[in-house]
Structures are given as structure tokens and as C-alpha cells.
């Protein structure tokens, strides 16, 4: 009957939809895939003497991610320094995610349980750090935790410690800095999830013999899991590629992948290695996301 005309209309509106989104898709394609393609091509070329690349195919960029060539006999050995940087990046990012969750969950819960009129104010306060440039915020943290900084001065003055704490230029300093910088990115999605949580379920849980801990684990956490997943991704992904924070708070020696990539493009003059590292970082992020999202889905739908 009318189904054929309807079908044609549907096809037409689908085609119009594609046509309308073409400019955006084109922009995304050029802006996202373009640089990626350039990076990938650079990773299989030969480094030029003063940076840049020579158009000569070589796997050296990729090989030197994990191996170093001995200067004397040319044999390949595992590049321990590189592995250390990878490991530091992944573990610091994981710890940052955990730290922001541990701090962010109670914060988000607190905000979500305020009267509706107060919530806006609290969320506003959470976003205040975004008003300041990341570099300035990071230097502010530096000012707090450095040897003669605010924290040490205060603790020495109160007599809690006798010698200043050496936090600055350690992995701990980087962790503190990243947790501070990325905390809002954890709080906001957690708040959105907890805000939707039906608080009456807490009473149902207690009524059915669950302890406080069991209510948290068996009722609250599974239901707000989409918020936890979103927050974790928002914190973990930029943490892995963090550049400013490890540079300012980790000093020169506690590098993360981001700093290592920068080193290859500037002082190291090894663009192919830098490019190969960039692609590797992308692959680690993708792998981490796939593992995480799959684990999250499995947990929430045991019968699916």
C-alpha cells in the first residue's frame, strides 16, 4: 500500500542526512586521519641529520621503540630506559585514575545528595580550576610541594616533620599533579550517574539484609557504573599522553611517553622514532579502552 512511498521517503531522508553531515565528516577525516597518516608514514622513514626525515624506507623507528643498537658491534639489546618510560606512563595513569575515583566518588556523592538548588553551586566550584591555564595550575602545584614550598614550610612550622619532604621531581609529584588536574573529569560523569540513582534503592538494599558495604558494592556501584567507566576513560586517556605535568613536576628524568615523544622530535632529532612512539601510544590507548569497555559490559550484564 503506502509502504513503497514510505520506503522511498525513508531512503531519501537517510540520503539527506548523509549529505548534511558531509562537511563535518570531511573535516573530521582531514583533521583526524590526515595527521595520523603523516605520523604513520614518518615512522617508516629515515631520520634526517637536523631533524625532519629523509624519504628512505626504514623500520628503524619501530625497532628502536623496544631495542637499542650497540654502538660497537651493532647488535640489538632491549631498551630498558624505554620500557621504564612505558611502564611509568601506564602505571601512573592507572594510579591517577584510581586516585581521582577515590577522591571523586565521595565528592560526586556529596554533590548529588545536596538539595537541588545547591548542586549548581557545587558543580560550579568543581569547574573553577578549568578557568586557569593548565601550565599555571601545574606550577601552582609545584609551588605547593617543592622543597621550600607551602606544604613543607607549613609542616616544618607545625613540627610534624623535621626535614622537608622530597616530593617534587618524583613519580609521586607527577601523580599528585595529574590527580589534581584530572579530578573534575572524574567528578562530573560520576555526578551525572549518581544524580540519576534512585536513593530509595538504598533502603531496599538495607531492608534485604545488605550491610552498608554490600549496598555500596552490590547496589550503588553496579548502577552508577556507566559514570565510573566514562570518568575513568576521561582521566586515563589524557593521563597516558600527559606532557605538561610530568615535565613540570617530574623534572627532566621522570619522563612519560608524551615527554619522550617530544624529546625525539626536538633534542633527539629522531622523528621516525617519535612518530612510531606516537602510534604506539595510540595503540595502547585503544587496547586499554577495548579491554576496559568489554570488562565493563560483561560485569553489567551477566546473562547477556
Amino acid at each position: 500500500m503506502a509502504s513503497r512511498a514510505e520506503e522511498r521517503m525513508q531512503r531519501q531522508s537517510a540520503r539527506n542526512g548523509w549529505l548534511l553531515s558531509l562537511p563535518a565528516l570531511g573535516l573530521l577525516l582531514i583533521a583526524a586521519l590526515g595527521p595520523l597518516l603523516i605520523i604513520f608514514v614518518y615512522s617508516v622513514l629515515t631520520p634526517g641529520q637536523y631533524g625532519n626525515v629523509v624519504w628512505e624506507f626504514s623500520w628503524d623507528g619501530w625497532v628502536s621503540i623496544l631495542f637499542t643498537r650497540d654502538i660497537f658491534d651493532g647488535t640489538l639489546g632491549l631498551a630498558d630506559a624505554h620500557l621504564t618510560i612505558f611502564w611509568r606512563s601506564v602505571s601512573l595513569s592507572l594510579m591517577t585514575t584510581l586516585a581521582t575515583f577515590a577522591l571523586g566518588f565521595p565528592t560526586a556523592w556529596f554533590i548529588a545528595t545536596r538539595p537541588p538548588r545547591q548542586r549548581g553551586l557545587w558543580l560550579f566550584l568543581i569547574t573553577i580550576p578549568f578557568w586557569t591555564n593548565l601550565l599555571i595550575r601545574t606550577f601552582a602545584i609545584n609551588e605547593v610541594i617543592r622543597q621550600e614550598g607551602v606544604l613543607n614550610t607549613f609542616l616544618l612550622w607545625t613540627g610534624v616533620i623535621e626535614r622537608p619532604l622530597s616530593i617534587i621531581y618524583t613519580d609521586t609529584a607527577v601523580l599528585i599533579g595529574m590527580a589534581y588536574v584530572y579530578l573534575p573529569l572524574m567528578v562530573l560523569p560520576l555526578f551525572a550517574a549518581i544524580d540519576r540513582f534512585d536513593m530509595r534503592l538504598l533502603e531496599a538494599g538495607y531492608d534485604l539484609y545488605a550491610s552498608r558495604w554490600q549496598v555500596l558494592r552490590r547496589v550503588i556501584l553496579p548502577i552508577v557504573k556507566p559514570g565510573i567507566v566514562a570518568g575513568s576513560i576521561l582521566v586515563f586517556v589524557p593521563s597516558l599522553g600527559a606532557y605538561v605535568t610530568p615535565r613540570v613536576l617530574g623534572g627532566g628524568k621522570n619522563m612519560m611517553i608524551g615527554n619522550f615523544i617530544e624529546l625525539q622530535f626536538l633534542a633527539g632529532r629522531n622523528w621516525p622514532l617519535g612518530a612510531a612512539l606516537s602510534v604506539t601510544l595510540l595503540l595502547i590507548v585503544t587496547a586499554a579502552l577495548l579491554i576496559y569497555v568489554r570488562a565493563a559490559n560483561r560485569g553489567s550484564n551477566p546473562h547477556g
Binding site: 534512585d198 533502603e203 531496599a204 538495607y206 531492608d207 539484609y209 546473562h303
Partner: peptide, 22 residues
């Protein structure tokens, strides 16, 4: 005694069923 220690169960007005469970 807290609710989880009482052999008393409630049918809530809103039912309060757990949405993440079957």
C-alpha cells in the same frame, strides 16, 4: 536494630526493584 538485622521486609510504594538485576 538497623534494617538489615531485622527479620522484617518491606514492599515499597515505588517497588524499588534493582534495575541492574534480573
Amino acid at each position: 536494630l538497623p534494617p538489615n538485622k531485622r527479620p522484617v521486609n518491606t514492599v515499597f510504594q515505588s517497588y524499588a526493584l534493582f534495575p541492574h538485576l534480573t
